[in-house]
């Protein structure tokens, strides 16, 4: 199992999830992707879209300015 991290705080919809999908596509099942993103649209949509595609949202952490979500690839 490996852990990868991406920062999509500079991205806007729909590139937020596009970047997350690209990173997930490079991982193997069971690997973890840590995504740093902004509140609002990215925080609402990225975890929801990842869950819809069958990935597991392990945690959503509020880091103040940004949020960190941890996704386990399905």
């Amino acid at each position: 199992m490996s852990v990868e991290s991406i920062d999509i705080t500079m991205e806007h919809c729909p590139m937020t999830f596009v970047k997350a999908k690209l990173a997930l596509a490079r991982l193997n099942r069971g690997d973890i992707l840590e995504v740093t993103l902004k509140g609002g649209e990215p925080l609402e949509n990225v975890p929801r879209s990842a869950a819809e595609e069958g990935h597991k949202i392990l945690s959503i952490e509020d880091l103040g300015e940004v949020h960190l979500i941890r996704i386990e690839k399905n």
Binding site: M15, V18, A25
Partner: peptide, 14 residues
């Protein structure tokens, strides 16, 4: 990535 974003977003394409 931007050009093909609407394909990549599709669960059945990606």
């Amino acid at each position: 990535l931007e050009r093909y974003s609407r394909h990549i977003l599709l669960k059945d394409v990606g």
